[in-house]
């Protein structure tokens, strides 16, 4: 158990040390939101129907950029091989990294929500929307962290989103619809938040179970 805590602590410390990467991802997210507002001319029309899509596309792209190098630095420096030899459960390696990615991505999302509230003049920091964001991000980070173990293959940076995004179609649909519900206050007719929660739960559990098989030497 102490080993697990040590790994969690290590990953959170790494998160802080690699903050420049996360700041870049945050800047990318801000730029995406601003680009969308130019592309759709959001300032003039009623933005509510478009906002869920804008938010989640931003979250997904920022997340896939930020989490894609989860393990690469440790793998390059040989720390990862040492960690595999350590007397800690392999799932803990995954959990630590997933937790760090979750914290980092939630920070970016909070920033985007604040930015969106200002730019689109819609209060986005409402409890229901925050709940949808957290639940969706858990599932998203769960899968993205597992998939980021992809080794150093050619065109890795493009390949990762190509692999990740189709798997996340249910999450994207459910998150966009649940966000729409939270923004408009009108029920959408399907239990989107429930689908989102179930999907997130199973992705996280499945990824934690399968992670040891992927990293095995």
């Amino acid at each position: 158990m102490t080993a697990t805590w040590a790994i969690l602590e290590k990953d959170l410390r790494l998160l802080w040390r690699q903050r420049t990467g996360w700041v870049s991802a945050g800047a990318f997210a801000a730029m995406t939101v601003i680009t969308f507002s130019f592309a759709f001319d959001l300032a003039t029309a009623d933005v509510r129907p478009l906002l869920p899509g804008v938010l989640w596309v931003t979250f997904l792209f920022a997340g896939v950029i930020a989490s894609s190098h989860s393990f690469s630095e440790e793998q390059e420096q040989g720390t990862f091989d040492a960690l595999l030899l350590a007397p800690a459960p392999r799932s803990a390696l995954y959990a630590g990294k997933a937790l760090a990615n979750l914290v980092g991505l939630l920070a970016i999302e909070a920033f985007v929500l604040v930015l969106g509230s200002v730019l689109f003049n819609v209060p986005l920091l409402v409890p229901r929307l925050l709940l949808v964001t957290v639940v969706g991000t858990v599932g998203y980070v769960g899968l993205a962290t597992l998939l980021s173990t992809l080794g150093a293959v050619r065109s890795r940076a493009v390949l990762l989103p190509v692999l990740t995004l189709p798997l996340l179609v249910p999450l994207l649909i459910a998150a966009v619809r649940a966000t729409g519900e939270a923004l408009s206050g009108a029920p959408d007719g399907a239990p989107w938040l429930l689908l989102l929660a179930v999907f997130s739960f199973w992705s996280a559990v499945g990824a934690a179970l399968l992670f040891p098989l992927v990293v095995e030497q």
Binding site: L143, L146, L150, V153, P166, L167, L213, V214, E216
Partner: peptide, 15 residues
């Protein structure tokens, strides 16, 4: 590459 094969297998199971 056995590691890449296992990665592919895990992806296929998820898919």
């Amino acid at each position: 590459d056995e590691q890449a094969a296992r990665y592919g297998a895990v992806f296929a199971i998820f898919a």
